[in-house]
């Protein structure tokens, strides 16, 4: 790795630290500010909310100490990834999350890759045919997809591909009881992934298609495209190298910004498709008012988003040398 690149990566990594600290502090405040504390809730849930019992719980959780001490304890625990217990499931929150996180990550990464790759390709195709029939059809299709609610799309896909055509599974992450291993397992998961990833990603395909088209048209107006033509390069090569490389930059930026939204969207899609990820856990935690679990998920999701943004920034640095060398 070149020195400038190494420094760039290091700088970005260091920027992550304060962000994560801020999220943790925010999380802590939410925990404190919520009406009634964990002791109240738990005592209520256990059905004997006497003052004495609640006070006892409070001492157990350290809720009777000064706020700053509680904060330090909280941060200390975070460092060891101790997010406390899920009051209802009587399991460490971190275990519940670690159990569900991979499924969500798989879904998210598939959806975003689908959206970015397909969006870029269609966007380039549209830009190269600006104003012609194909371009107009793509614009209309993108607008339709853009306006389609994800849950409705998900249900329609299930009806079409699982129920009517019976070629794709309607839910779950793998075939129950099949016990596939190795490649067969990967294929099985991929098979189950197609519908949820499409449902989650299609909206973003529409967005990136439109953005990529606009970005390509802007790049086509720049001087170095004329240089490329004067060199004797074909329009195809110009589109897929010189123009694309520059036009990608806004798309990558937006993709970075939208990772948080995508995570939010996956909660919904996971519920529709019975995908065993964080989304279902959020749903359960909300229904059962499991505050510790909810905040644990919030914290880990924020960290995931921060790391994803870091990855996006690094990709951006790879695409645009001006960033790295600044």
């Amino acid at each position: 790795m070149k020195k400038a690149t190494f420094q760039f990566v290091l700088r970005r990594l260091l920027q992550v630290v304060p962000v994560v600290l801020a999220i943790a502090a925010f999380n802590f405040l939410l925990l404190r500010l919520a009406p009634g504390d964990a002791a109240d809730i738990l005592a209520g849930q256990m059905g004997h909310a006497t003052v004495e019992f609640t006070e006892q719980l409070r001492r157990e959780f350290g809720l009777d100490r000064p706020l700053y001490q509680q904060f330090l304890i909280y941060m200390g625990k975070l460092l060891t990834l101790d997010l406390g217990m899920s009051h209802l499931q009587q399991t460490p929150v971190i275990d519940l999350i670690v159990d569900r996180l991979p499924a969500t990550l798989i879904l998210m990464v598939s959806a975003i890759l689908l959206a970015v790759i397909v969006g870029i390709c269609i966007g380039i195709a549209a830009a190269r045919r600006q104003g012609r029939l194909a371009d107009n059809l793509i614009s209309v299709a993108a607008l339709l997809v853009y306006a389609t609610p994800a849950f409705w799309l998900g249900l329609m896909l299930i009806v079409l591909f699982s129920i009517k055509l019976d070629i794709l599974p309607s839910g779950g992450m793998m075939q129950i009881g099949a016990g596939h291993e190795g490649l067969a397992h990967v294929l099985d998961v991929t098979w189950h992934l197609i519908l949820p990833a499409t449902t989650l990603g299609l909206f973003y395909v529409a967005i990136y298609t439109r953005l990529m088209r606009a970005s390509m048209l802007e790049v086509y107006g720049l001087d170095f495209i004329v240089t490329a033509r004067a060199k004797g390069l074909s329009e195809g090569v110009i589109a897929w190298t010189h123009a694309m490389r520059n036009a990608l930059l806004p798309v990558v930026t937006l993709a970075g910004v939208q990772i948080g939204h995508l995570l939010g969207g996956s909660v919904l899609v996971e519920t529709v498709f019975g995908w065993p990820g964080l989304g279902r856990l959020v749903f359960d935690a909300l229904l059962q008012r499991d505050l510790n679990l909810l905040l644990g998920i919030l914290f880990i999701s924020s960290v995931v988003v921060v790391i994803a943004n870091l990855v996006v920034d690094l990709v951006y640095g790879l695409l645009d040398p001006r960033i790295v060398h600044r």
């Binding site: 001087d223 170095f224 240089t227 004067a230 004797g232 390069l233 490389r245 520059n246």
Partner: peptide, 25 residues
């Protein structure tokens, strides 16, 4: 024509910052 461009007849432009692609070496 593409065989002629850049090979038999080449061109340089007014603004060399804009005329080079910023993302390639």
């Amino acid at each position: 024509l593409r065989g002629v461009r850049g090979r038999e007849m080449a061109m340089i432009f007014q603004d060399p910052m804009m005329a080079l692609n910023p993302v390639y070496t």
